[in-house]
């Protein structure tokens, strides 16, 4: 299990790359104005800084607009089938710990048809980086409500409004025992890059929810919180070790309240009453409470790293079992295996 199929290359210096080295020769085919472009750009610009090899990097996706992502990265990539990217990436990451495996998908792909694979990949803490592009709509099938669409959403398949309560992806991930959970949005390249870098550096499964605008079927879904002129008042930046504070003047903050958290005016409660963000807190309940501050992108919404805890990675444990059986029994001896049940000789 430990022998990878190729020389690791880890001892050699990683060649210096630039953005163009990470761009494939394929024409990008998202709708003009799609939020996916800025995410792609953010990542292509970040990759040279991560100091990784292109051939050791794999993007795995399912189906949907976001899932076209691998075609545009000059790395290894698989555009698979709807919902299954986390499962396929799990097998790849377990088989090949020498690789950096990224999973890219949308809210329909990851939370609806692939919801089961997502939660189990997070629970197991597979060493993959999941980028969840949440635009709260089905784009590729041309505009049906998604599992993150707000209740009452009017779409082609819900002409008088959808009946379902949406998932809060950050809450779901925390509930699924995720060891790294972050949120960012497509209007802020630097924040995206910071979150992607943190996801990359995290051992085990990491998930970054990216609020992404679908300008064709759900335009402006996040405008009320991400537009430059409202951002300061509507986004709550989470910074490890710092009091949670936001607003143009820093006039708002988050404090503990009634077993959860609430938004307060700093003038009312004082700075010392603000919650100091601890992303490494083992108990997930505060991170979960923070994820519940906004039910949708119409209220002040936390962005940043909600949770980053070190927890055993699945693949390491799995490979440890192979090593353990090898050290207990020696390398497999096929002849001995075939003779391991009672035998008789004629």
């Amino acid at each position: 299990m430990t022998d990878t199929l190729l020389p690791d290359g880890g001892t050699e210096d990683v060649p210096v790359t630039k953005r163009a080295d990470w761009q494939s020769d394929q024409e990008v085919r998202w709708c003009p104005g799609c939020g996916d472009y800025s995410i792609l750009t953010a990542l292509q610009l970040l990759m040279p800084d991560l100091g990784v090899r292109r051939e050791k990097t794999v993007f795995v996706s399912g189906i949907g607009c976001a899932a076209r992502f691998p075609y545009y990265m000059n790395t290894y990539g698989m555009h698979s089938i709807h919902g299954r990217a986390p499962a396929i990436a799990t097998g790849l990451a377990l088989a090949r710990p020498d690789l950096d495996v990224w999973v890219v998908g949308g809210d329909g792909d990851m939370l609806s048809i692939g919801g089961n694979h997502l939660i189990h990949a997070l629970r197991r803490n597979i060493d993959i980086n999941i980028l969840l592009f949440n635009n709260q709509i089905y784009g590729l099938t041309k505009g049906q409500f998604s599992p993150t669409s707000e209740r009452g959403k009017v779409t082609k398949s819900s002409p008088i409004g959808s009946c379902a309560t949406p998932f809060n992806p950050v809450s779901l991930a925390i509930g699924a025992e995720a060891s790294f959970v972050a949120r960012t949005h497509d209007m802020d390249r630097h924040h995206m890059q910071e979150m992607f870098r943190r996801a990359y550096e995290h051992p085990g499964a990491s998930i970054v929810e990216v609020y992404q605008n679908c300008n064709v079927f759900n335009d402006g879904a996040f405008e009320t919180i991400t537009k430059k002129d409202v951002r300061d008042d509507m986004l709550i930046p989470l910074r490890h070790g710092e009091p949670i504070r936001f607003g143009t003047e820093g006039q708002f903050g988050v404090a503990r309240h009634d077993g959860g958290v609430e938004i307060v005016e700093v003038a009312d409660v004082g700075v010392d009453a603000l919650l100091v963000h601890d992303e490494a807190r083992t108990d997930p309940s505060t991170a979960f409470a923070l994820s519940r501050l906004a039910e949708g992108p119409d209220r002040p919404t936390p962005v940043g790293v909600f949770r980053a805890v070190d927890r055993g990675e699945y693949g390491e444990a799995m490979r440890g079992q192979v090593d353990q059986m090898e050290s207990d029994r020696g390398n497999g001896d096929l002849r001995a295996l075939l003779h391991s049940l009672p035998t008789w000789t004629v």
Partner: peptide
């Protein structure tokens, strides 16, 4: 795996690797 689909999906991912 968590289900039959993930079972074959993971096997296919490993085969890709």
């Amino acid at each position: 795996a968590e289900d039959e689909i993930a079972a074959i999906g993971s096997a296919l991912g490993a085969a890709y690797g």
